[in-house]
Amino acid sequence: MQASPLASEILFHLGPVPISRPVVTTWAIMLVLGGGSWLLTRRLAVHPDRRQAVLEVVVTAISGQIRDVIGREPRSLLSLLGTLFLFLVMANLSGVLPGVKAPTAQIETPAALAVIVFVSVHWYGVRAQGLGGYLASFARPKLIMLPLNLLSEVTRTFSLMVRLFGNVMSGEFVIGLVLALAGLFVPIPLMALEILLGLVQAYIFTILATVFIGAAIGSVEKG
């Protein structure tokens, strides 16, 4: 019996813990992002060189996007949302590399990210409005909206997960099928499209997470 292509491939075990391919790929991404950040930020100065200027452009661009969405100082959200965006970019684009499968093409990684966003939304909401105020926000504008609001919290998290997973997974499937059917260089345009798609999905996931958190802390209108 052939294994499901949607199932995560177990590479090895650490004791009782199975280590799947997405986990290993994520470790590699963590190593690249963490190690790269450590290397690039070792000698920052008040007067930046080209390397530092690029880093500052990346950080201030992400920070500016968050500020534009939530309309307030973004530093408290920068670590979570900035990491989310950078990780998604790296994860989505890693599928383009030969022999590497994007972690976001497996349901566990988008699910983990969606759950993290779900938890973060409520944590920031409670921290900003207090527990009572935050829970009361689910009954607005009318009490009758409470079930729908609660349901939407689950469904939007689910849609967040499925959107990312579906797009990345389907892109990789299409490339694999075309590669199998047409030959070596035919999928290249599709790979370029996959790169664009990965960037767009990273942006959409991050922006939606920002909007959800902004709505939870009261700076963005719920809807």
Partner: peptide, 23 residues
């Protein structure tokens, strides 16, 4: 795969800390 789900959650938390600390 719940193990993968859990590890990816932890991995992302660690990555958030790493980038906060080093970026």
């Amino acid at each position: 795969d719940w193990w993968t789900f859990a590890l990816q959650t932890v991995n992302f938390g660690i990555l958030v800390w790493l980038l906060h600390r080093f970026l």
